[in-house]
Write a protein that binds this DNA or RNA. Structure first.
Lengths: 231, 231
DNA sequence: GATTTGTCGTTTGTCGACAATCTTCTTGAC
DNA sequence: GTCAAGAAGATTGTCGACAAACGACAAATC
């Protein structure tokens, strides 16, 4: 077998479309492309020095992850995030993640607990490290993803990944709102503790509270923003 | 190959992609294209008398609705449904629809109730009418969709629509299992009653039971099928 | 005889061009 | 000055062609 020739990781050859998609996602999440802005295929294609076909497919991908909106014969636009859409998103996350951590606690705590502990520790480590917001957000995302991953229901994880980018948008906002990164990191600990106690109800309550607080901050932020600049 | 599955009729020129997608969905749901089968772009394009571009986009759409799987440089394949994936799907549905009907009962019962009543009546009407399986399934789907639609959370509806086609696949199986269509229609009544009483817990319990029964039948069916013909 | 290597046909990946459609700007009437 | 109709420009929709990658089978090697 070729696998015996130690350490040859399959070359990441699945390519262009994914790369284009990633570039666009990064740009949107970084705020480089304002909400509502048109994403003209030919413009992007020209900038990236390729044809419209792969760009178009990348945009279709972004559409299914909710960052971009498509209108027939009119093209793609960066989706405008409203207070309502963020509120709905966080309600869905509460629904999903409380159910996920319930199942995790009941049927998979032994395997999941070390992973959760490690990731919680990583969050604290990052908090002490510095203030690379994107790193914090990615670590937080990974924590929540772990919960869905170990829920025993593949579709929970699939759904989480589907809303991951929009979630990230919320987290970026929250990150900016937290003065103390340690405080943010600390909010995960009660969840881990509840899982350690094999107390599903408590775990569900803890993550419900955790996400609800986040929801409050995010909706508040977008509410102010919408009020602030209605020109 | 595909030509044997179904004679595709040439299409009109408006909303081409959606039309192609719908044609393919119908073919897959009707069982005309077996799971695991390759969906070659050029073959489909030739049969529908158009170029590969719209076919490709249609397939990408189907991918996000879970009926089709894409592998880079290898193309699209009809997804094979396993017992596990169906079980996971129904667990997600239970989670989604119990939450949806809770919200509906609490904040939107007045508006939703007449719609639910009408759709339940329609189910009974169809049961008396004849045995057009597809019509029954569509009507049942619409009932469940109404619940998400009136939940007050747009994302609930969006998620429902996303898993609608796979759900339909399950319902088609169940439809064949129910001897008496009236029995199937009747299982919706307790849900409507609970909403009428404004009893959210009871409504949630009723739909939980309703979907759980369905889950049992579907997983049983796919289980037997997998055992029955393992070549 | 089994494993590797080379070749070929098929299918996907990307491209540039043209047609259909939407948007904007101009023009003209009131 | 306002509004409508239409022309001009820009953008998406679809197409056919070619390049790259894959899978299967034949040929070569040990």
């Amino acid at each position: 077998m070729l696998a015996e020739h130690r350490g040859f990781v399959p070359l990441n050859r699945d390519g262009l479309v994914d790369r284009v998609a990633k570039t666009l996602v990064d740009a949107i999440l970084a705020g480089g492309i304002p909400p509502g802005e048109r994403l003209a295929e030919s413009t992007i294609a020209k900038q990236m020095d390729l044809s419209r076909a792969p760009v178009r497919e990348a945009l279709r991908l972004l559409e299914s992850s909710g960052l971009v909106e498509y209108r027939t014969n009119r093209g793609f636009f960066v989706k405008v995030v409203s207070v309502a859409s963020m509120s709905d998103l966080y309600d869905l996350r509460i629904l999903l993640e409380t159910a996920a951590i319930r199942r995790l606690t009941e049927i998979n705590a032994d395997v999941a607990l070390p992973a959760l502990r490690a990731q919680a520790a990583e969050l604290h480590r990052l908090a002490g490290e510095g203030d690379d917001l994107m790193a914090h957000v990615s670590a937080d995302m990974l924590f929540h993803r772990l919960i869905c991953e170990h829920s025993g229901n593949q579709r929970f994880l699939q759904l989480f990944d589907q809303i991951a980018n929009e979630t990230k948008l919320g987290l970026l906002v929250i990150g900016r709102l937290y003065d103390d990164p340690h405080q943010m990191a600390g909010t995960h600990d009660p969840i881990v503790e509840a899982v350690a106690l094999r107390d599903a109800n408590r775990a569900a309550g803890a993550i419900d509270y955790h996400i609800s607080v986040a929801k409050e901050m995010v909706t508040q932020h977008f509410h102010d923003q919408q009020e602030g600049k209605p020109e």
